[in-house]
Structure formats: structure tokens, C-alpha cells
């Protein structure tokens, strides 16, 4: 598919921390190269276009829409459906749009108890009137609307049809640039592909991979805050829960180079059904214990295993429809 000279792009954010917006700016001087090739028609955080401007475009007029953030509110659902209509290509940009992201962990709790905690019970809340957000509030001047808080946070692909994914929390500049270059090149990969990143796990490009001992045998895992790891030795071998082996590479191992273990933000490789389950299997495989007690002891310091292995991908788990949500 050949894209025209000045490509029309849109950027939009759903339930987002803003990091993915910064990631675009983080391209630094390369941003100017990109700006030469594209015409931004919608970017709420940076430019003054309104939704009506998008509505006025014809269907498919936007060449590529980069959408980041998870679908948390009814408004997000509305806007992404609009953008889908108006765009030829939709790219889910960043972990939240790709897999659900960190906010996806909210799906472990019931919506009612989340509301309850956030607005009434949390230690730092002062809410004597016990006001909870309502979708419609009637006032003398008319009805005020707030978007509805959806039951579950969803990644973009569970709400609209997504063409490509750019992984990362946020996507690193090299990945963003490569993804954009791929899209602008006109030589598009098959639909559903992950752009800009590697087809192999992080260990492939990690500078510490060759320092791994012949066999990994962890008697007990360790938390990063409990010691200063040796920056020249594989972090997994030192007992840290580094998810490098199961995570897609391409990020240039930035976290490893900062002496921190990989937390899996680039998500799973192709052919892996579920990131969390795949991570559990490899972590278990290197535990050097032979009975249940020993295995639990090996895990001991890891008090939130779900949070560790599903940090970015809980809403993408095949079991998401069956989870029994807890009360906060």
C-alpha cells in the first residue's frame, strides 16, 4: 500500500500516563525528520484540533492513527471508534493500547469496590459528602455529563480492529522511529504485526547474556531494592526476576543497562499465547527446589506474582472473562 507524500497522522491518548506522548517528543532531532513527512491532523496533548475536526474528515482520510492508553471510559470507546472509521491504519501504540498496560491490573478488583476505595475509603481521601462520580448530574443550568467508568480496562484491540502494534512502556525512540519508518516505507508487514521491535526475546541483544552460567539454578529470588546487583553479570543469574527471556527485544536493554531487571513491557513474542503464563513456566523452570515448601520459599520475596508477570498484560489474558474479581 503506497502512502501519499505528506502522510496524515493522528495521535490520541486514552487511559494514559502521558509517557507515550512524551515518547513521540523523545524522538529528539529525529522528530523533525518525521514532521517533514507527516501532517498531524489530531493531537490533543500538543495541538488545538477538536473532535469535530476529526468528525469532519472523510472516512479513511487519516492515513495512520497512533492510539495509546487503555480503554477505561466510555469516552475512550467513542473516540477510538471514531478514529477507526476515519483512519486507514490504526496503530496501538505503547503497552496500554497493545496489551492493557499497568492500569489493566485494576481488572483484579470489582468496579464497585474500586470506586468505593478511591472516592471514599482510601487513607488520603476527604469526602464528607460521600460523592461518587455519576454519569449524569442534573443542575439548574442543565445536565453535566461524565464519561462512564467501564467494567473492565481493555486494550485497544478488544474494542476496535487494530492493524499494527508498537510495544513498550513507553516505546523507546529507536522502536518508535523504526515503526514510523516502516509505515512510511509503504512496504507493510502482515496485519497484526508488532512494528519496530525484534522478533526475538531480549536476551538476544542483552549485553549480559553471555555472562550467564551454564545452568541457572535459583534457590531464592531477590527483590531489586534489597541489594546492588553486579552490573556485569546476568541479573536473572543473580536472583532477580528479570523477564528478559520471555519479553520481546528491541528496546536496547535500557533497563538492564541501568542495572534493573526487565519487567516485560514489550510484551510477548509472536506465537506466545499468554505472556504471564509463559513467564511463570520459565521462572519455575530455573527454581532449584524439589518440594512445594522449597518452591514457595524460592518465591518468598516475590509477594505479588500476578503483578510481576501480568504487569502489562492482564487484560490480554485468555482467562480474563473468568476472573473472580476481588473486593479492595
Amino acid at each position: 500500500m503506497n502512502l501519499p507524500a505528506k502522510v496524515k497522522v493522528a495521535f490520541y491518548w486514552n487511559a494514559s500516563c502521558g509517557g507515550c506522548e512524551e515518547a513521540i517528543v523523545d524522538l529528539g532531532e529525529d522528530l523533525f525528520k518525521v514532521l517533514e513527512a507527516v501532517d498531524i491532523v489530531f493531537w490533543p496533548v500538543a495541538l488545538d484540533f477538536k473532535l469535530e475536526d476529526v468528525e469532519r474528515l472523510s472516512d479513511g482520510e487519516i492515513d495512520v492513527a497512533f492510539i495509546n492508553g487503555g480503554i477505561r471510559f466510555s469516552e475512550h470507546e467513542k473516540v477510538v471508534k471514531l478514529l477507526r472509521r476515519k483512519s486507514k491504519i490504526v496503530v496501538a501504540y505503547g503497552s496500554c493500547a497493545h496489551l492493557g498496560g499497568i492500569p489493566g491490573l485494576a481488572n483484579l478488583w470489582t468496579k464497585a469496590s474500586i470506586m468505593d476505595y478511591v472516592y471514599l475509603k482510601a487513607p488520603s481521601v476527604v469526602n464528607e459528602s460521600k460523592t461518587l462520580p455519576k454519569e449524569i448530574t442534573q443542575t439548574d443550568a442543565g445536565d453535566l455529563e461524565l464519561p462512564a467508568f467501564l467494567d473492565a480496562l481493555k486494550p485497544l484491540g478488544q474494542v476496535i480492529d487494530v492493524d499494527y502494534y508498537v510495544p513498550g512502556c513507553p516505546p523507546t525512540p529507536n522502536v518508535t522511529l523504526k515503526a514510523i519508518e516502516t509505515l512510511l516505507s509503504g512496504k507493510l508487514p502482515p496485519k497484526g504485526a508488532v512494528l519496530g521491535a525484534s522478533a526475538r526475546a531480549l536476551c538476544d541483544t542483552c549485553p549480559l547474556n553471555e555472562t550467564k552460567p551454564e545452568k541457572l539454578a535459583i534457590k531464592e529470588f531477590r527483590r531489586p531494592h534489597t541489594f546492588i546487583p553486579d552490573p556485569k553479570k546476568c541479573l536473572l543469574a543473580q536472583g532477580l526476576l528479570c523477564l528478559g527471556p520471555v519479553t520481546r527485544g528491541g528496546c536496547e536493554a535500557k533497563c538492564i543497562k541501568a542495572n534493573m531487571p526487565c519487567t516485560g513491557c514489550f510484551g510477548p513474542l509472536d506465537n506466545v499465547l499468554d505472556f504471564g503464563a509463559r513467564a511463570l513456566s520459565f521462572i519455575a523452570s530455573i527454581i532449584d527446589q524439589r518440594d512445594e515448601e522449597g518452591i514457595k520459599k524460592a518465591l518468598g520475596p516475590i509477594i505479588d506474582l500476578v503483578g510481576q508477570v501480568y504487569k502489562f498484560s492482564l487484560p490480554s489474558c485468555p482467562l480474563r472473562g473468568l476472573i473472580k474479581r476481588k473486593e479492595v
Binding site: I283, Q289, I323
Partner: peptide
């Protein structure tokens, strides 16, 4: 020789997660 020890470890970790998910 040692396959079932790996099975036990994988199951133990999976059970930890499934318990959290109510399954």
C-alpha cells in the same frame, strides 16, 4: 529423572496466580 520436579514448580507458581484470580 527430574521432570516432575519442574512440573511441581510450574504448577505451584500457576496456582499462586490462579488463586489471586479466584480460579
Amino acid at each position: 529423572l527430574v521432570g516432575n520436579y519442574k512440573t511441581l514448580a510450574r504448577y505451584t507458581l500457576l496456582k499462586n496466580v490462579l488463586d489471586e484470580l479466584g480460579l
